[in-house]
Simulated scan of single mutants.
Amino acid sequence: MSTLPLIFIDGDQGTTGLQIHERLRGRDDLRVLTLPAAERKDARRRAEAINSADIALLCLPDAAAREAITLIENPKVRVIDASSAHRTSPGWVYGFPELSAEQPQAIAQAQRVTNPGCYPTGAIALLRPLVQAGLVPADYPLAIHAVSGYSGGGRAQVEQYEGPEAAQAAPFVLYGLGLAHKHPPEMQLHAGLSQRPVFVPSYGAFRQGIVLSIALQTRLLPQHATLETLRAALQAHYAGARYVTVLDAQQSATTAQLDPTRHNDSNDMTLGVFGNPEHGHILLCAVFDNLGKGASGAAVQNLDLMLGAQ
């Protein structure tokens, strides 16, 4: 019998599941288990599969992910949940390794890891170090804007843009106008905010990639919060990070635009601090792949930590 760890992908035909499967293809340090199409909705077979795994990767809608947890009887089964079902739940370790110096070890030892949402990944990456450093007040009236590729809407949206009716798909869509999106509680909790941020999501007619931006006004920040001190705080926090890069002053000064597809098919993320001191305006930006660092790339990064491969 093989001693290689067995990884069960529950929901391997969804956008995230397919990407995870592709990222694990060819690895010789683990075994991947998926169910054939006829058995994916068979509760007994799913229960058998999940309880046979060393680590189960849940790539499911929220309700199905919660149901999958109830199927676990084997106490040795560890879980990475890629849904939003447990991102603010007690007892679950937040799967953003760059959150703090202690987070990689917490993930490595965890039984239950919740993968971050795509948009929250960028917002938390920018805000948490600055809130912790006292440069952005926890009660700052934040508005977070983000544009994602259409794949962020899952298979149905991908089919809308890549299927026979693609010519009729909108070039750009602003949504969530009721300001009741599911991501703000996750952003608030893990960024250390005391108030719910306003979140304005959108997507464009490109497959994948995200640009997320947060505008700040220096008159509402502590006196020591400047373009330079905010950038330095982010650089210090992510010094030595494998997947996160912070643009330095020269790079920022020569950057005229941000391409959301810059890091497609990778687990990389670039953070930037831009601004106009004359007007007292600062713009925090994050660029990454919504299917990479925002989903499957993060899941595999967490998986490797749990397997002791990082």
Rank of each mutant, 00 (worst) to 15 (best):
N51Q: 04
R45F: 02
A49E: 02
Q132Y: 04
T34C: 08
I80F: 05
G117Q: 02
A53E: 02
D42W: 07
L127N: 05
L135R: 02
Y94Q: 12
G122W: 00
R112S: 11
A143I: 14
A65S: 13
V136R: 00
L135A: 01
I55K: 01
R66M: 10
L60N: 06
G153H: 03
Q19T: 11
T114F: 02
V158A: 00
I124A: 12
A106D: 13
R23G: 04
Y161C: 01
A138Y: 07
K41R: 14
L57K: 07
P36M: 02
A56P: 03
A156S: 13
P61T: 06
A82C: 15
V32K: 03
C118G: 13
C59I: 11
G154M: 01
N51G: 03
A108G: 13
R87A: 07
L127S: 03
R44Q: 15
L18E: 12
A133R: 02
G122P: 09
G149V: 00
P61C: 09
V79Y: 01
A64G: 04
L127F: 09
G26I: 05
R66E: 14
D54R: 04
T34V: 14
Q109V: 03
L60Y: 03
I50T: 01
L24V: 10
E159K: 01
A63G: 08
D28Y: 01
A49P: 05
G91N: 04
A47S: 15
A101C: 09
P61R: 03
Q19P: 00
R78C: 10
P90F: 06
H86F: 15
I55D: 02
A47G: 13
V158M: 06
Q157H: 06
L35T: 05
A108D: 04
G134F: 07
D29S: 09
